[in-house]
């Protein structure tokens, strides 16, 4: 791929310039020929969305080939008191690159879908929930694609059970079931109101309820997958990096998953509020939760955590040194 200075991909520059020219052309048409503007606007929409998709495609491609910065590596190491060595450096960098690639791809796809969907509906609104959901789906895919340590000639494994509490605080491990329970209670409230004759929109209530349930199941399954990811015996620094990766993944899944479930629950709250004819308290609660939860989820995802010594085992003589 040809690059300009500062490693900016050439097709991305072309796409940005094309988008700017399309917007300028629309402006000129609006000024000099207002009656043509509506037609030009409608014709321009698919062009702009297409260009946006192209820009994002190249952005993701750019992110994919860009090296993981030293700052990011050091930040990861600091969060787990991990000593990055020649043995485990590539393993951590591969993890950081994989997660960045899939999370940014998820975000880019959701951005295109959100803009496209909004244009179809005649609006230019960017919905944070859609963007966050796309990012989180990317994060889930990334976790499924993380490489585990390779097996040696003689396969060796620790006899120490891997417990979630070695990798994150017990409350964080319980966070997804807790907020899932709260979402379930909200769904039950919807059902009760509907049964008592209140005008609850059934499509919205069922949609939000199913979305919350799907997120709970998907996140829990992925958390268990991360916990059970193979960890054959290897050199101590390789195992330390593997534990740190596992811990970071579980933190991100807990924080991101809980946030997404709370968003679904706030959708249910809004449905109840609408059924009650616009309940001010419920609306305030919903808005408070929608603003506060992403901040809390973020604090969970980036929290420092030192891995418990119980998860460490000694090296095997013929175990592989690298992942």
């Amino acid at each position: 791929m040809r690059m300009l200075r500062y490693n900016v991909p050439m097709p991305m520059v072309v796409a940005v310039l094309a988008a700017a020219m399309a917007a300028a052309l629309l402006l000129v048409i609006r000024v000099f020929s207002p009656e043509m503007f509506a037609i030009a606007f409608l014709l321009g929409i698919p062009v702009i969305v297409g260009i946006l998709a192209l820009v994002l495609w190249w952005l993701v491609d750019f992110i994919e080939v860009a090296p993981v910065s030293r700052d990011r590596l050091e930040r990861f190491a600091r969060r787990h008191d991990l000593e990055v060595t020649a043995n485990n450096g590539a393993q951590v960098i591969r993890y950081l690159a994989t997660t960045r690639r899939w999370r940014s791809a998820g975000l880019a796809v959701s951005l295109v879908l959100a803009v496209g969907w909004g244009v179809v509906g005649g609006t230019y609104r960017l919905d944070f929930l859609t963007l966050f959901a796309g990012w989180f789906v990317g994060a889930l895919i990334a976790e499924a694609r993380i490489d585990h340590l390779t097996y040696g000639r003689r396969r060796a494994a620790s006899l120490v059970p891997r417990r979630p509490t070695a990798y994150l605080p017990s409350f964080f491990w319980s966070l997804v079931p807790i907020v899932g329970g709260l979402a379930a209670l909200t769904a039950v409230a919807c059902a009760v109101l509907s049964a008592r004759g209140w005008p609850v929109a059934p499509g919205r209530a069922i949609g939000w309820g199913l979305a919350a349930a799907a997120v709970v199941v998907a996140v829990r399954r992925m958390q268990l997958h991360v916990l059970r990811r193979p960890q054959p015996v290897a050199a101590p620094d390789v195992l330390a990096a593997d534990d740190a990766i596992r811990s970071r993944s579980l933190h991100v899944l807990a924080g991101g998953g809980a946030t997404l479930i709370v968003f679904c629950a706030s959708g249910l709250l809004a449905t109840i509020s609408a059924a009650l004819g616009g309940n001010h308290d419920l609306d305030t609660l919903g808005q408070l939760v929608v603003f506060a939860m992403p901040l809390y989820g973020w604090s969970v995802a980036v929290r420092r955590w030192r891995i418990g010594p119980a998860s460490r085992v000694g090296p095997a003589k013929d175990a592989p040194a690298g992942a």
């Binding site: 097996y151 494994a157 006899l159 059970p161 990811r229 960890q231």
Partner: peptide, 15 residues
């Protein structure tokens, strides 16, 4: 003493 869960040990040994 707790032994590792079957799934964990199987995954770690590649069995």
């Amino acid at each position: 003493t707790h032994l590792p869960p079957i799934r964990q040990l199987a995954a770690d040994l590649g069995l």
